[in-house]
Design a protein around this nucleic acid. Structure first.
Lengths: 199, 199
DNA sequence: CCACCTTGATGAACGCAGTTCAATGATAGG
DNA sequence: CCTATCATTGAACTGCGTTCATCAAGGTGG
């Protein structure tokens, strides 16, 4: 069938994702503009809309890749972590922090993308999130062997959210952000203190 | 001097803040439009810019009031809380949560407002934040009497950020938000577990 | 290999924001 | 009351995402 066309579309799709990824990483989500994109990709503005529904779709494609890189970094840190489950939590949380710090604008784009109210997050997002939760709940189950599964799930979510909050506010320069070392320190403080009494 | 003019300006300023506050509370920050605002206030679009530098300035004025209400709610909860410092932390954190849940769009506007990169947060923001931090650090100092002041400051910030993260992700419907009860439960879990071993 | 038709690509034009500023109207001092 | 000064106005400007009538290319049957 329209093989030629499909190949061209796929190539344009990839090219747009690469350009958008670089733009977001360097200048943030707000710097993503249809005309600039078309200029850099050497296509018409309308061509973007032949390949993506709108710029939000393109942003989501970039975010999927960012989230995947994030998950890979955390997994890598976990693989290299010591046996101790508390240390595993600390190492993973700090890997999350370092990813966010090193990919600040891309990481922000994960949360700043406009989502139509009441619409569920895309599947890849929930899947990637579930993977992260598994990394957390495994050590947690070792640390708190007597807790119910449901309680562990809440703990997992709570700890992830806590670390996320520390990183979010810590990296926010405007509201008197905090040095990288101090963020790592806060993460370790919370996790160690949290797991200090294992019951 | 220009008393007539100044009075008129002050009245317009107040009227715009009230209208913007209602608009944000009901339909979110993205529903704030200069023409609608002028229409509702019965003034020209340009008049907005005689009184506020731009719409972000107006949003910041609304945010100052929101943040102040938030602080008042937390203070009220603290005043009605038991003596036990751990319970004080839990009560305040849940007050934070309930404010965010009951004023979701206004609360979101606190963080969603566009801030020029590299620019510090306004003074009222830092002051209000400092007040919240004091509410937290006082019970913390009772719970952890042997910790250094610097360490306590980090703990304070870390705990605030943690609760903020739990509320933020918990209220986010798109990424499979969580029921109000479960958010309260997560907050209590984290704070109680965190303070279970007092050292 | 050509003629035809279907399908895709194009970019000027549209709608809708925030913001500006020349023209108009009000204010206050003489 | 007059006039110089200042405030207000809203049409116009700019910049954005998005659309769609127009044109070009691709594939197909003869």
């Amino acid at each position: 069938m329209a093989t030629k066309t499909e190949i061209r579309r796929q190539e344009l799709r990839d090219k747009l994702i690469v350009i958008a990824e670089r733009t977001i990483a360097q200048n943030g989500l707000s710097a993503l503009r249809a005309r600039d994109l078309a200029g850099e990709a050497g296509c018409a503005v309308g061509a973007i809309y032949n390949v993506f529904g709108d710029l939000t779709d393109l942003t989501l494609a970039v975010n999927a890749r960012t989230f995947h890189r994030l998950g890979a970094d955390v997994a890598e840190a976990l693989a290299a972590a010591p046996e101790d489950p508390v240390e595993q939590l600390v190492v993973m949380a700090q890997a999350y922090h370092h990813f966010a710090a090193s990919n600040h604008l891309s990481w922000r784009a994960l949360f700043d993308v406009e989502r139509p109210a009441g619409e569920a997050a895309p599947d890849w997002y929930l899947a990637e999130m579930g993977q992260l939760f598994t990394y957390i709940s495994d050590p947690l189950a070792v640390i708190f062997p007597e807790r119910e599964a449901e309680e562990l799930a809440l703990l997992t979510r709570a700890l992830f959210s806590s670390v996320h909050g520390i990183v979010l506010l810590g990296l926010d320069e405007a509201s008197a952000g905090v040095s990288t070392d101090k963020i790592d320190h806060m993460i370790a403080l919370v996790l160690r203190q949290f797991t200090a009494s294992r019951k």
